[in-house]
Design a protein around this nucleic acid. Sequence first.
DNA 1: TTATTTTGCTTAAACGATAAAGCAATATTC
DNA 2: GAATATTGCTTTATCGTTTAAGCAAAATAA
Lengths: 339, 339
Amino acid sequence: MKKVSLKDIALEAGVSTALVSYVLTNKDKKARVGEGMAKKIREIARKLNYQPNHIARSLKSGRSFTIGLIVADISNPFFANIARTIEDEAKKHNYNVIFGSSDENVDKSQDLINVLVNRQVDGLIITPTEGSEQQLQQLKEQKIPFVLIDRFFPGIAASYIAVNNRESAAVAVSHLIKAGRKRIGMVAYKTTLHHISERIGGYQDALQQHHIKTPNSLLKKARYSHLKEDIQLAIDQLLKGKQPADAIFFATNSLAIEGLKYINTLGIRIPDELAVITFDEGEALDLFYAPVTFVRQPILEIGKAAVRVLLEQIADDTSATTAICIDTTLVVRKSCGSR
Amino acid sequence: MKKVSLKDIALEAGVSTALVSYVLTNKDKKARVGEGMAKKIREIARKLNYQPNHIARSLKSGRSFTIGLIVADISNPFFANIARTIEDEAKKHNYNVIFGSSDENVDKSQDLINVLVNRQVDGLIITPTEGSEQQLQQLKEQKIPFVLIDRFFPGIAASYIAVNNRESAAVAVSHLIKAGRKRIGMVAYKTTLHHISERIGGYQDALQQHHIKTPNSLLKKARYSHLKEDIQLAIDQLLKGKQPADAIFFATNSLAIEGLKYINTLGIRIPDELAVITFDEGEALDLFYAPVTFVRQPILEIGKAAVRVLLEQIADDTSATTAICIDTTLVVRKSCGSR
DNA sequence: TTATTTTGCTTAAACGATAAAGCAATATTC
DNA sequence: GAATATTGCTTTATCGTTTAAGCAAAATAA
C-alpha cells in the first residue's frame, strides 16, 4: 500500500493538488476555497488516512522542525534526564529530537555536527567537548542556531545554559568545612572544560575563605578515557598518606559513583571515616547506605531553557546570544556526617 | 551566508547541476564525466564546503536513513543504555535516530508513531505499551518496518528481540530457593504485557518445581502510574504479616530501586533479614551495601540485533518477521546471602 | 570518407508540498 | 448594461537532489 499524497486526494476529488493543500493546511478561507469542496477534500483525506509528508514540507519551507542534540553520552543518567526534558519540551513546540553521543571526543563531535547539520536540523543543543571551539565557531559562521548546555567557552560568544559552578562548588565545600572536615580532597576530570575549572575554583575559593591550607596534592584529576584506574589511584593517594583526607568532593555524578564503588571495596565507612559530597544526583547516590549529599542541578529548568532559547534564536535569526545561569541547591543527606 | 547547494557549485564550474551530482555521488565513471571536470567539481565543492541536503535526498529517494525509536522513558537507565547501543549501531550504517518516550501510555505511543511516520522514518524500534496492538497492526498494514524490543505480543506476528523471561525468572527464583529462602515474594507491574506475565510465570514455575507452596498474596503488582505508593504498600504487606517474606524478586530495575529505597527506610538488613534479586542492572544496585544479585539482559546484543533486524527488514521489503530470543545471565552478588 | 560508437555534457522530469499568480465565471456596483 | 469586484479554482514555479533520456562533438571503425 503506497503512501497517500496530496495527488491521490486531488485525483479522487477531481481538483488540483494546490486546492487540497490549501484546505488541509487550513488556508481554505484565505485561499477562497468553496465550503462544499473544502468539506469534500477533508473527508477524502480522512478516508484515505492522509499523513502529510514532513520531508517534502521541510524541503519547501527550509525548516525541518527537528532539533539536534549532542550530549557526551546518552546512557549517562544526567544526560538522559536532560534529553528527556528536551524531548518533552521540543514536542510541545512540534519539534522532534535527533540525538548523538560524542563520548567527549572532538572528532565524534565534529562528525555528529556534520551529520545533524546535513539533516537540516533547525538548531542544535550541544554539550561541547574539550577542544571543540572551532566547531562552534564554524556553526556561528554558518548561522546555524545552537545552545550550549552544561558547559561553555568563555572566549566564545554563544548562547548557553549553565549553573553557577563556582559558587555551587564553594557552597558544597563550605558544607564539608562546617561539618568539621579539615583535609578536603577533590576528584575532578582532567580537562580544560570551563565548568570543571570553575568547580575546582569554587573548591579552592571555599578553602581559602575559611583559611584552610590545603596542599595541591589533595586535588586529583582523572582522565575520562581511564576513569576507573585514575579514580582508584586518586583515592588511594588521597586516603593512604600520613595525613589522609577526611572528605572528598567529587566534581560529577560519574566520578562519585566510580569513586564510591572503590571506597566500598576498601571498607571505608561513610561518613565516619570519610565525608563525601558531589555534583549531580542519581539513584545510586540515593540508595547508598549513607545517602550522598549533593549539588542539585535543576535539570528540568536547564532542558526547558535550552529549548526555549534555541527556538527563540531560530525564530529571531539575529545573532544575539542569551546566557542563562541557574542556581543549584545543596541537598544535604547523610554522607557528610553531623551538622 | 546561505547554504551551498549543487546549483552554486554548478554555477561556479559553469556546468549543469546534474553533472555535479554525478561527480559528488561518485557516479562520475558510470556517467562518463571527464576526469578534469570531475576534479574541478570536487575542488569547488571542497572550497565552498558543500554539504548535501539530506532532506532533498530523502524526498527523492523515499528513504530518510532515520530510525524512529520509541521507548517507555529515555531517562530510565535501561532504555538509555539501549538507546545508546542503537544509536551507535545505527550510525555504523549511516542511520540516525529520532527518539520519543511513551511513558507506557497508549495515546502517547500513537502520537509518537504518527509523528515519526510522518517524518518518514525508514523503520521503527518500539518498546510497545500495553494495549498498543492495533497500532502495530496498522504499521503492518502500512508496510512500515518495525522491530519490538523488551516486549512483544504473542498474538501479533512481528519481529522482536527479547530475552527468555520465563526461564530467567525461574533461574532467579531458584537461586533464592537454593540460598535457603522459603517465603519468596515478587513485586511486578500491574500490566498484561507479556514480558511481565512471563517473569511472573517463571517465578511460579520455580516455586512449583521446588514444591514450595506459596500463597498468591506473595505476588504483588504495582501500577506504573503510582509506583511509589504501590511498592511501599506491597512491601509493607509482604513484610508485616505473621509469616513475612524472607526474599523478594523484583521484576525490573525501577521496581527494585524504588523497593530498596523503601526497605532502607524500614531499617531492614539485606541479605540477613531479606534476600533481594531483580531483573536488570544499574549503578544503584552496584553501589548498594549488599550489591544486588540480578538477571543481566545483554543490552548491547539487544540493541545491535534490533538495528540489524530492522535494517534487514527495510532492505528486504518482504513482510517476513524475525524473532530473536536472547539468553540472560544471573549475576550473583551479596543480596541473597550465602550460597 | 562515411557510418558507428564513445565521450562529455545538458535537459527535463521526478519526489511531495506550498503559494504566488493567473483566469474564467459569477456577483456586485453605478 | 457596462465596469468592477469577488469567487473558485488551476497553472506554474519552487525547494535540492537524482537519474533517465537526449544530443552534439569527437573518436573509432568500416
